[in-house]
Simulated scan of single mutants.
Amino acid sequence: MKSHDATVRELLDVAGTTYAEQADIDLADKPAPLYRLLVLSVLLSTRIKADIAVAAARELAVFGTPRKMLDATWQQRVDALGRGHYVRYDESTATALGQGAELLLDRYRGDLRRGREHPDGIPKALQEIPKLGPVGAHIFCREAQGVWPELRPYLDKKAQDGAKRVGLPTAAKDLAGLVPGDDLPRLAAALVRVTLEKDTATRLIPA
């Protein structure tokens, strides 16, 4: 049986690219990349393949701030989603993105970092964004813990289910002890892929 350390090394090697990295987001504690992560989280929240959501997020990068997203026409947002083949939910998502950008500008002056001061916590603040429910909040927090240390360790049920499948401990604090803090987003992404992607699970779960 492989050791936990060996399993984690394999996880990170095979599936440890974060969704932000996959979407060409150079994540940092700055307004623009955090906003792009928020948009990606909205796109990943729907019942659509992750690769399609990531492709659509890349297309929407041209509207990479709340002001640019709000200033874009609804049709421009729909067209960008279409170029990423995000067609099943394109119209409703285009509307939600405009509404979310307006909310961010009104409430946080376009800077999502101000949501960290929400009295009910970051996940609750995120769920005020149109079309971003608990699933989207989990996605954002799993990735953002790399730049917002107060979220660590953020390893929700999807990540914990993946840990169970590959024989790792499931408690967040135990999983966090297996990697440096900066690697937690990569570990979370890898564990989620084990849960959601059959091919990844097949490569990593012993027969």
Rank of each mutant, 00 (worst) to 15 (best):
S3F: 13
S3R: 12
H4P: 08
A6I: 07
A6Y: 05
R9I: 12
D13Y: 10
V14K: 13
A15M: 13
G16V: 05
G16L: 02
G16R: 05
T17M: 09
Y19P: 04
A23Q: 12
D24V: 08
A28D: 09
A28M: 12
A32P: 07
S41E: 00
L43I: 11
D51A: 09
A53D: 10
A56G: 03
D71Y: 01
Q75G: 03
Q76I: 01
Q76E: 13
Q76M: 11
A80Y: 07
Y86M: 07
Y89K: 06
A94R: 06
A94Y: 06
T95C: 07
T95Q: 10
Q99H: 07
G100D: 07
L105P: 00
D106K: 09
R109D: 15
R109G: 15
G115W: 09
H118E: 08
D120I: 03
G121W: 01
P123W: 03
E128V: 01
P130F: 01
K131G: 10
L132E: 04
F140Y: 15
V147C: 05
L151C: 03
R152T: 08
P153A: 04
Y154S: 07
K158A: 13
K158C: 13
Q160N: 02
Q160S: 14
V166C: 11
D174Y: 08
G177K: 00
L178F: 00
V179A: 04
L184F: 06
P185D: 08
R186H: 12
L196F: 12
E197I: 09
R203H: 01
L204W: 10
